[in-house]
Structures are given as C-alpha cells and as structure tokens.
C-alpha cells in the first residue's frame, strides 16, 4: 500500500538512529579515554606523608626521616675540643641569629662579650643524628650557660639556649628564626596553646613540627621539635 511505503522511510530512519544510539556508551567511553590520557591531575594526599614543600626543606626532612641516620664518615670519637675553637664555632650561628633578628643587638653584644671569655666549662657531644655544644661561664653567684644543638646531616642548629634575653617577645624571635631556617615559606605557622608560662609555640601542619621559644630576663630558649606541642 502506498501509505505504508511513505511511512517506511522515517521508520527505518528512526530505527537506524536507535541502533546508532546503542553505540553511544562505547563512543562516550572512547572519548573519555582520550581525555583521561591527556589528563594531569592532582595527586591524592597520602595520609601520614609529609607535605612536599616541607619535605623539600632538608632540616624538616631530616627531622622526620633521619632519626636513626648515622654518618658513616663521622669519627666515632670526638677529639678533645679546643675552647677557643668552640667559641668561634658558636659565634657563627649566633651571628646568623642576630642577623635574622631573633636576638637583639644588645643580647648579641652580651653573647659576644661572653664568647670573648674562655668558658669555664665546655663540651661537645653527638648522639648520631645531633651534635651538641655546651659552654659554661661561672660568675660570682651566677652561671651563664650557652647550649647549641645542630642536625648532624645538615649542620643546621635546631636548639639554642642562650644566657641573655628580655628584649624581644617570643613570637618575634620565632618568626625571625623560621626565616633563618627557610621554613617561613610554608606559611602555615600558627601559634599553638601552651600551658607553660613564658613559652610561645608555633605549629605548622605542613611541616608537622613546632618551634618553641621560652624566654626570661636573662635567658632565651629556642627549639625545633617534630610533632605538636605537648606540655
């Protein structure tokens, strides 16, 4: 019949469209594959992994990774130190600290005056990953003690205990010190609560480390420690 013939073309057309649509999902998948191959996406953050920025800072990297590291080239026994040499060695990081603004010029001058004298007692130690330096000057009824600790792998000082103080507040000192350490770039150093008086702490989630500053009239105490502040 003629009427049926007229209707057959659109019908066949519609069925062909249906058949073509059946291949739709496969086509979609192929297009998606091309897109995915070109794709460069953000890598998911692995739980427990150190932030890449923090990881790129050797001090932090060593702080987290190098606790058991021992320098095979380091001498097993430290030679008997020379006091003058130790004083010169100590002056170097203190100068950098003053330069960065973590201690005032007056405090720096006090330290320089101390270092000019030969310490009454002195020692140097190493526990594998850290090297410590202690200098003590005895007064009439006071004792001035200067303690420094540095990372063995990087040679960066991570602990200062200085017998001067009173000029600057804790946070200023810590910010300046972080700049010196090159860790202020992480940008997420936030003050952390501490129960202890005279103590300021800044914590960075990226670095997963805390810097502390405890200070009094005549002493300043700076320390970089991994983990959150615990008091």
């Amino acid at each position: 019949m003629r009427r049926d013939k007229q209707g057959i073309l659109p019908t066949v057309g519609a069925l062909l469209v249906c058949a073509a649509l059946l291949g739709g999902p496969a086509l979609w998948a192929r297009l998606g594959d091309a897109r995915r191959t070109q794709l460069v996406t953000a890598r998911p953050v692995t739980a427990g992994a150190l932030d890449e920025d923090a990881r790129a800072i050797p001090v932090l990297y060593e702080l987290h990774a190098g606790s058991t590291c021992t320098d095979p080239d380091a001498p097993a026994e430290l030679p008997e130190p020379d006091p003058a040499e130790l004083c010169a060695e100590a002056a170097e990081p203190l100068a950098a600290l003053a330069e960065a603004g973590a201690i005032s010029d007056r405090e720096k001058a006090g330290l320089d005056a101390l270092l000019a004298r030969t310490p009454d007692q002195y020692s140097r130690g190493a526990d594998g990953s850290q090297q410590t330096l202690s200098l003590l000057w005895f007064g009439e009824n006071t004792t001035a003690g200067l303690y420094l600790t540095r990372q063995a792998a990087t040679g960066v000082y991570v602990f200062y205990s200085l017998p001067v103080g009173g000029d600057l507040d804790g946070e200023t000192r810590l910010r300046a010190w972080l700049a010196l350490l090159g860790m202020d770039g992480l940008g997420d150093w936030e003050p952390a609560d501490t129960d202890a008086p005279d103590t300021t702490a800044l914590y960075s989630a990226k670095a997963r480390a805390t810097v502390f500053c405890t200070s009094g009239e005549d002493w300043v105490y700076l320390e970089l420690r991994k983990g959150q502040p615990t008091f």
Partner: peptide, 18 residues
C-alpha cells in the same frame, strides 16, 4: 517512545559507566 528510551538508556548508561 523507542527513541526517547534509547536516548535515555544510552546517555544514562554511558554516563554511569564513565
């Protein structure tokens, strides 16, 4: 009906699988 169903199924299926 067939076209609509085919369209829905194809796009729905394609989307879901993707």
């Amino acid at each position: 009906i067939l076209l609509l169903l085919c369209l829905t199924l194809s796009f729905g299926g394609g989307w879901t699988i993707d």
